[in-house]
Design a protein around this nucleic acid. Structure first.
Length: 451
DNA sequence: AGCCTTTGACCAGCG
DNA sequence: TCGCTGGTCAAAGGC
């Protein structure tokens, strides 16, 4: 059968997938830059210092999200998370330009709850900082900025496995007591108001992070649900909403709708459709089947990017709501440009990209390429600067050359990025620095002689 | 024309 | 070896 060889090839690809790099999100870099004393490089300096808790000490009241999981699971849709106290500056990537705080922060304040903050107390020293962030086309950068970002547990040891993650529907049931952030577990918890993510396992595939973020956010789940991820032995990610009803349905508060500007509403509405393809990547459905292990039909999707091994399985309930998404492997390419989905001609986007920095109020001035590049720069710096360890794998290829890194210092990059993020809160941006892809390719070369 | 979805059939793994 | 099950293929049709 013709498909057999193809299948074998795919399996080889999967087998060749590296234990993906430990991610630290680009966003966390920005954030740290802001609530820290300053420069980007200092942020890394902190991590290089191997002091796992020095950040938490600085921030004092950081919330251990592990303690939030059970409560949030029960009350995610109903009550503000009082346990989360706003950590000044933590989410103020745009602080300088917006002294009143972020949009969501203001919303939250008006709504009577505070914005959760990132618990970086578990972050500790960084052995590897490689965290691309991809804000998919439908995801409001504001949401991401004011959401918890993935912070990996530096104390966790990298898993020798290929990066399988399991995201269970019941956070509590999969959260080992006091080990939520152990080697094999991370959790992130979108809940009422700004979302909150708590940790990321070292070795967790960054593309998976992106996908998780993308899917969860774009499915409109950021307000109401709870997720848990558990790493398994295969390169697979399973995403389940706490409750399918809440996760993948649009549910914006009137407060938000009131505040959201037109573009943003539009963005949300488009972002919250239940199409599993709407995670920023392009997918082609290649099968559907009613499996016994699930009461819902399972659909099979492949990433349409050439040679990209990523597949995903999506299960939907009868009413069309997604009950589970399982990702396999990791993307070996950047997030596709959003214009393909939005219908905006590439030339237009490029033009906007050129001018985005000159148009602080631009809604659609997504400096996609610029952000990608900047993000790449940061990631590259991560890869090179942390522990003085060179990045694993070959030179970045998927992004072309790395000259931008050489031509911009970290401060400029972070500053520019912060500004762009700030401005992009009214538009759509894409940040991507998928280091995983590079390592994937690297690993392939090392592991799979056939490629 | 190209891409995507649908859907029945095929294949491999497992007990 | 056989049957079950999940995953994939690929033709057909739709957009």
């Amino acid at each position: 059968m013709a498909g057999t060889g193809d299948r074998g090839s795919l399996m080889e690809d999967w087998m060749a997938m590296p234990p993906t790099p430990s991610p630290r999100t680009l966003m966390s870099s920005f954030l740290n830059e802001d609530f820290g004393s300053g420069q980007f490089s200092n942020f890394f300096g902190e991590h290089v210092s191997n002091k796992p808790h020095d950040q938490s000490e600085k921030r004092g009241e950081l919330v251990d999200l592990r303690e939030q999981v059970p409560a949030q699971s029960d009350t995610a849709t109903a009550t503000p998370q009082k346990d989360f106290s706003l950590q000044p500056n933590l989410f103020h990537a745009n602080q300088k330009s917006n002294p009143q705080g972020s949009l969501a922060e203001r919303r939250a304040s008006r709504a009577g709850f505070s914005i959760p903050k990132i618990d970086t107390s578990r972050v500790g020293s960084s052995t590897v900082i490689r965290s691309p962030i991809a804000i998919p086309p439908g995801l409001s950068p504001t949401t991401l900025l004011e959401s918890p970002v993935f912070l990996y547990n530096a104390m966790a040891q990298p898993s020798p496995t290929t990066g399988k993650l399991f995201v269970a529907s019941e956070a509590n049931s999969t959260m080992p007591p006091d080990s939520t952030f152990s080697n094999d577990v991370f959790s992130f918890q979108p809940h009422s108001g700004p979302t909150s993510y708590s940790n990321v396992e070292k070795g967790y595939n960054v593309s998976h992070q992106n996908q998780l973020l993308s899917n969860i956010h774009q499915q409109g789940s950021s307000l109401q649900s709870s997720f848990t991820a558990v790493k398994d032995s295969a390169d697979e990610t399973i995403v389940k909403p706490k409750t399918s009803d809440s996760v993948f349905s649009v549910n914006h508060s009137s407060e938000e709708q009131e505040d959201d500007e037109g573009d943003q509403n539009e963005e949300y509405s488009s972002a919250t459709n239940s199409n599993p393809a709407e995670d920023g990547y392009n997918w082609r459905k290649y099968g559907q089947k009613q499996v016994k292990s699930s009461e819902h039909p399972r659909s099979y999707y492949k990433c349409t990017h050439p040679d990209c091994p990523v597949k995903k399985k999506v299960e939907r309930s009868q009413d069309g709501q997604i009950t589970e998404i399982v990702y396999k492997s990791s993307h070996n390419h950047p997030l596709p440009p959003p214009n393909r989905r939005s219908g905006i001609p590439l030339s237009q986007i490029n033009d906007q990209q050129v001018h985005v920095l000159e148009k602080p109020g631009s809604h659609t001035g997504l400096n996609t390429a610029s952000l990608w590049e900047n993000g790449k720069s940061e990631c590259i710096q991560d890869m090179q600067g942390v522990e003085g360890r060179p990045a694993a794998g070959p030179p970045v290829s998927a992004y072309g050359d790395t000259s931008i890194m050489e031509s911009q210092d970290a401060a400029d990059v972070s500053s520019t990025l912060s500004n762009e993020i700030d401005r992009a809160t009214q538009g759509t941006i894409s940040l991507d620095c998928d280091v995983g892809e590079d390592e994937t390719e690297s690993k392939r070369r090392l592991v799979s002689p056939s490629t």
